[in-house]
Design a protein around this nucleic acid. Structure first.
Lengths: 144, 144
DNA sequence: ATCTACTTGATATTCTGTATCAAGAACTAT
DNA sequence: ATAGTTCTTGATACAGAATATCAAGTAGAT
């Protein structure tokens, strides 16, 4: 069972309807190999001849993000994009060349933050970690 | 030597001019105890009777951010704000009640990411970690 | 004092994201 | 199948953030 099926099933369980626009958006999302924005998706959908409203794209992405089927990745430069994800806590490793994303868990991070929290009497409720660099493929295909 | 002096000295070294607007902005920045946005700063400056253009505020903040005298903090909800920082790698702990920010180093994080990078053959060039929760003061001043 | 290059700021403009609300569908129950 | 209820959609308008432009102004060097 792929990502799309899992999303569809989950949304149905939550009482959301599976509409045409939502189907189209789900399909298109899987074509991205790098983080994408709502505007990019909208443009791509229209370019592909899919008739969808701007509001619907924003709303659907927000719905997926809320349910953790999409993660949010911030680039150092400031922009942020969505990436396909699975529910549950995870972090991302983003290639700054090709944009590919690798998800990972960071259990040891809890320890680090736990110690910090104790020392400062700060009650940590969540964190956000993201790493960027050059993926294996990109390292091989070009120098430096 | 305080933050402002260090910034002024650094900018001078880099060949930047110390203008009235820049002085005013530097002074105002220190008044914030929580992350602030360009628009907020602009409004506060005008409220204080300081005559500065919008573009100048944006440009100056970008200049400071580029030189790492300002850090960028992203809240889980999506907005992001600037916080006073020092050049060099550091992370932030943000209180979601009062917005106060504590900077910290995360040396052990290097280990975690190093192992990950090796396993995946991913060359990590940088990372970004931010934690949020409730600071000591806010824990004391209200329940839950 | 003078000069040059960096800065500024008013304006216009682009772009992102949201509010509105009538029309249109998906799912349910019959 | 059909009807009905409620969720969704999308065109439009709108609000807000951020940038481009470029003449006028000024900091710092000589």
């Amino acid at each position: 069972m792929g990502w799309t099926e899992r999303v569809v099933e989950h949304l149905a369980d939550e009482g959301h309807r599976l509409t045409g626009p939502r189907r189209a958006i789900l399909e298109h999302i899987l074509r991205y190999s790098a983080p994408f924005t709502a505007e990019e998706l909208l443009a791509d959908l229209q370019k592909a001849g899919v008739q969808v409203g701007r509001a619907t794209v924003y709303r659907t992405l927000e719905l997926l993000h809320t349910n953790q089927w999409l993660g949010l990745v911030h680039r150092p430069e400031g922009e942020h994009g969505y990436v396909v994800a699975e529910p549950g806590h995870q972090h991302h490793l983003v290639c700054r060349r090709c944009g590919s994303v690798i998800a990972f868990q960071g259990c040891e991070l809890e320890t680090l933050l736990g110690g910090l929290a104790e020392r400062l009497n700060f009650r940590i409720e969540g964190h956000w970690l993201e790493a960027f660099g050059v993926c294996r493929t990109c390292q091989m295909t070009s120098a430096a």
